[in-house]
Each structure stands twice: as structure tokens, then as C-alpha cells.
Amino acid sequence: MAQLGLFIIGAFAALFLVLAPPPAAAQMKMEGGHGAAHNQRGKPASAHGAHQADTRPTKIPEHLDVARTKFSEQAKFSVNVTSRLDPVTINKMHSWVLNLKNPDGKPVRDAKLDISGGMPMHGHGLSTAPRVTKNLGDGKYLIEGVRFNMAGWWELKIVIDSGHHKDNVTFNLILK
């Protein structure tokens, strides 16, 4: 039994050795070599000045809210967005329908909508300039001219002005 126990421990130790990431020292050595290459050109690895003040998030937040129906930031409106391209795929021009209601669920007609957005991790905006092209009535609006040009985390930001209230809402999309 003791021998079997030893083998099991050995097996786990071997597994750990095989599967564990390389030690930090080894990684530093690799990066050191990389940095040295830059030094030869007179540009140390840390001299990427453009990126030092970078405030862009480096990863998609955990539990990112990807709901298509939500209240606007100050809860002035309930907003639903539906893509007419389902599933939403990259590099395809398509349109969305936005359904706007007040918090009581009554349609908000004749609102002004301003659409923007982009990729928070990249710092760039939408690749097109979508806009409302048709008031479909009953609080529904057609947004044409949406095209996402890469996979990843996108935001679709809408400024809503009903004449009585002004509020913002942001929808998150994860495109594959």
C-alpha cells in the first residue's frame, strides 16, 4: 500500500512538473533576451512611450452584463436592442431595432437617438457611423449601418433624448 501511495504521489509530482507554467526566472530570461534585442537598436523595451499612459482595460471584465434589455443609466428608460443579423457576425453591414419604453413600460415615441460605441480594450470607436433611419412607430426605431470589424468586446452606446428626459445606455457584445 505504501508503495502504491508513493507512486500516486510521484505521479502527481510528475504531472505538476509537466503541466506547471515555467518558473518566473525562466520567463524573465526570455524577456531579458527580447529586451536586449531592443537595446541593440537603442530602444529599451520600456521605451514604448505611447503606451505608458494606457488606461484601456486589458481583459474583458468578469460577469460583463451582456443583456439586450436594460434600464438606462438614470433609469429614465427601459431599452431593448435586437440585431436583425442573428447571430451578430463580424464584417457584415446590418441593422438593429431599438425598442424604447418609459419605466412603466409605455412606448416612448419620437425620441432622438445618438449611436456610438467601440472596443474598450482597443480604444477605438465603431468602424461605421450607424444612425436611426426610420421611426418604426410604437417606440421602435430602426438603426442602420452597424458593422463590427473584429471579434472581441464591443460597446454600443446610445444617448436618448425623449424631449422630456435625456439618458444614456450602454450595451455590451462579445463577438466571436
Binding site: G33, A45, H48, A50, H51, G123
Partner: peptide, 20 residues
Amino acid sequence: NRAPKAKIGRSELKPLRLTE
């Protein structure tokens, strides 16, 4: 890999730091 700073506008790239 280096992703140098743009002389015009702002580069979208980030240095990759890949090994040789």
C-alpha cells in the same frame, strides 16, 4: 512586436513582447 509610437495619430497596437 515593437509597436512603436505613431508619428501621425495614435497607433492601435500594443507591443507583443514575443520571443525570437
